[in-house]
Amino acid sequence: MSNIFKNIFTKNKKLSTDELIVKKTIISFFFFFILMGAGFYGWKWLRYQPESANGARQPLRTVLDMNESLFRRILSNRHLTREYSVEDAVKNVRVNGDLGLKSILDTASWRLYVIKKNGDTLSLTMDDIKKLPKTEIVFDFKCIEGWNQITHWAGVKFSDFVHAYGLTYETQMKYTGMSTPDKKYYVGIDMPSIMHPQTILAYEMNGKPLPLNQGYPLRLIIPVKYGIKHLKRIGTIFFSNSRPPDYWFERGYDYYSGL
């Protein structure tokens, strides 16, 4: 046996079939283990990459952002979420999370603040918002956790809202940011998605004013995104060319989170 090992790696030696089998097997497995090892260390390398400030390892975040730029290309105002009839909507709408809703809401003093590019701030009451044309939508709400529910909402189309308040200049920027009055929950949304014709500032659910746990008095309904972007109890809206802070992005989720 030891002869075989001596012989097979001698140059220009004529090998028997048995020796050739051993030689080829050794060489192949040598490279096989090297490649398996390289794969294993590649994986270890990835697993030990420091988590960046946004809660995801940088190589993963880079690919997620590349996915975003790819799938943004196919988002358009003509790509609509399927709508259902009102009878299809569930009566018991699932409540998932109360981030930004824990502080006490003073209904009388609540205002929607919209920060304009020139520094001015619009301060709007619910009556101001309800004066605008009302849009209803019944759609399949999708949570990032994986469940979905057909739900019924009504409010003002975001695109109607910005046009009514002369925010055309602001909508030429890249992002819209929103936060709850206590600033505990906040989202950032790319402009094409927030201006999508099915995105609404909702004040009704199932034909009645929003319940407190669903974001009374005003929440975002944006069917082209997962539920994490549907901010409840909107306090402030602003516009920006860089990504506004986003609560779940900071905890490792995809910034875009588009559907």
Binding site: F71, L80, R82, D140, K142, P223, V224, L259
Partner: peptide, 20 residues
């Protein structure tokens, strides 16, 4: 992954719940 932008595919796959 993209039930709105690829809505036709989602329908073809029997809807969101079924596809999952």
């Amino acid at each position: 992954y993209k039930p709105t932008q690829l809505g036709w595919l989602c329908t073809l796959m029997g809807g969101y719940k079924f596809a999952r």
